[in-house]
Amino acid sequence: MKLPVYLGMVRSAESVLASSLRKIGDGHGSEPDVYFICHTLADQCEAHEQLLAPIVDRYGEQPDDEPERLHAAELDDTRSGPLGLLRDLQDLHLLTTFVDFTYTLVEQAAAALRDDELLDVVADCVGETSTQADWLRTRAKQAAPQALIAAE
């Protein structure tokens, strides 16, 4: 059974997203809403990891032996300025998409396994992941015209 591969993927992606949110939030501390919301969302990701822990304990985690083409890599640096903010929000959005898609596949497996506990965990987490993506999109859309047209 390969579900443990995906459980490992989603748990590590949540962890990567949490630390990336904190890094970007700190890096754009002069945008106070970005700073505070990034940290709130990072708290959510860490709570998701906690929710996943008993499931992972049950199924185990299994490394993927496939070659990595695309994986959730931690954002290790922040950019600066209005354009940099757009780019960083976009990178975060990519990470949330990765998490969201991974949950979608885990949810499919959970349904087929009739694993109600896992279905509940996914339901709890994926709604927040989707809102995280919505917020990143909302914030970046608002910032884009000024950053791309008027800012120096």
């Binding site: 919505d134 909302t138 914030r139």
Partner: peptide, 10 residues
Amino acid sequence: HDLLTGATVG
């Protein structure tokens, strides 16, 4: 909006 983050519902 989402009241926690301000994300728009659309």
